[in-house]
Simulated assay, not measured.
Amino acid sequence: MTEGRSRRPGPRIEEVARVAGVSKSTVSRVINGEKYVSERSRQAVHRAIALLGYSPSHAARTLAGSKANAIALVISEQGSRVLADPFFAGVLRGVHAELAGRHVQLLLMMNQPLDGEDQVAYLTGGHVDGALVVSLHGDDPLPRTLHETGLPIVVGGRPLAGGAVPFVDADNFNGALGAVRFLISLGREKIATIAGPLDMAVGIDRLSGWRCGLAEHGMPVELVVHSDFTPDSGALAMEELLRRAPDLDAVFVAADIMALGALRVLQERGYRIPDDVAVVGFDDSVLAATAVPPLTTVRQDVEGFGRALTWRLLAELAGEEKLPQSMLLPTSLVRRASA
C-alpha cells in the first residue's frame, strides 16, 4: 500500500452535509443543479462549500444522477485466486442478478501491480458511480479513502479498519458457533480448527465462534492452525494438526475450499470420516456437495450476499436515506456425510 493511498483527499461530502444540515444526497443534487431542492437547503449547501473550500469530485457530482451508469466490483485478491474460488463466482452471480434490467454496467477489478493511488484515481475519475469492495485484508485504507472522496461504496465483509463505511457480512460468528455445538452434540471431545487468516474479519469471526463453542463446555482451544483459503493450505494445516494431536476426533474448517485439502490428508493417513474424525466446513459452496465424502458445512447464501451488497449501493445511488449502516445475513448448518 502506498503512502499516497491513505492521504486525506480534502473536505468530504459528509462534512459539507453536516455543516449545511442536510443529507449527502441533497448536497449532490445541489452540486448537480437538480430541481426538488428547497432554496434554503441550496443556499446552506453553497455556504458550506465556500466555508470548507470543498471541490466536488466526479463521484459527488454523480451521486444522485448515476451518470456513468456503471459500478465497480473490487476484489482485493490476485486474479488466479479469484478465478479458482467458487465464493467469488457466487458473489459475482449475485451482483449480476441484482443489476439485471437496471441498465447499469459492471466493472470487475482485481489486485494488480498498480499503485494504490492510481486505483483510487481511476475509481473516482468518472468511470463508475460507486463501488463494491470485497475480500479486504488488514486495515486496508481503500474503502475509507474512497468514502472520503464522496464515492458511494459498500464493503463485503466487516472492515477491520472500522469507520463509517457501510458493509454487508454473513453471521460468521454464530455460524461457527453452531458448527461447534453440533460437533459436541455428536460426542466429539477433541475439536480442532483450520482457521482463516487473522488479517480478515471473516477469519477472526469464525475463529471466535469456534472458541466460544468450546468454552461453553470447558473444552481446550489450543488446536488452531491458520490457513489462507486454498486447498493446499488446508492440507498443510491438517498435517500440522495431526502432528500435534493425532487423536483429534473433529475439525471445523473455516472454508469449504480448505476442507477439501483437509479431507485428502485425513484419507491419506487412514482416518475414517466421520467415524474417526468428523469434518465441518463453511460456505456450502459447490465444492461441499461433490466432496468425498460430501461435506457437512455452514451455509451462507453467497449469491444473496452479492445481491444485498448491490442493493445497498444502488439504494444510496438512488438517494434513499436512513439506510442500514451494516447488514448481517443469516447462516445455517447443512448436514452431509462428513459429520
Rank of each mutant, 00 (worst) to 15 (best):
N69S: 14
V154H: 15
P143S: 11
E98T: 10
P293Q: 04
P166N: 12
R336V: 10
L52D: 00
P294R: 14
L198W: 04
E3Q: 08
P166H: 15
L92D: 02
R42S: 15
A70V: 03
E148G: 05
V82C: 06
A131G: 07
E77N: 04
E98K: 14
D276F: 13
P11D: 00
Q112M: 06
A17T: 01
D118P: 01
Q325H: 14
D169W: 02
A64E: 11
D232V: 12
A308D: 03
L106T: 03
M1A: 15
K67R: 15
A288W: 11
G126A: 02
R336Y: 06
A70F: 02
E3C: 05
S233Q: 14
M110K: 12
T145K: 06
A289C: 07
L114S: 11
G150I: 00
D171T: 06
R81G: 08
Y122G: 03
L198V: 05
P166E: 08
V280G: 03
A192F: 07
L242A: 12
T331K: 01
A235T: 04
M258C: 13
Q267R: 15
N174R: 11
A17H: 00
S326M: 05
H46D: 08
V82W: 01
G175S: 08
G261S: 12
A195W: 00
I49E: 01
K322C: 09
I204V: 15
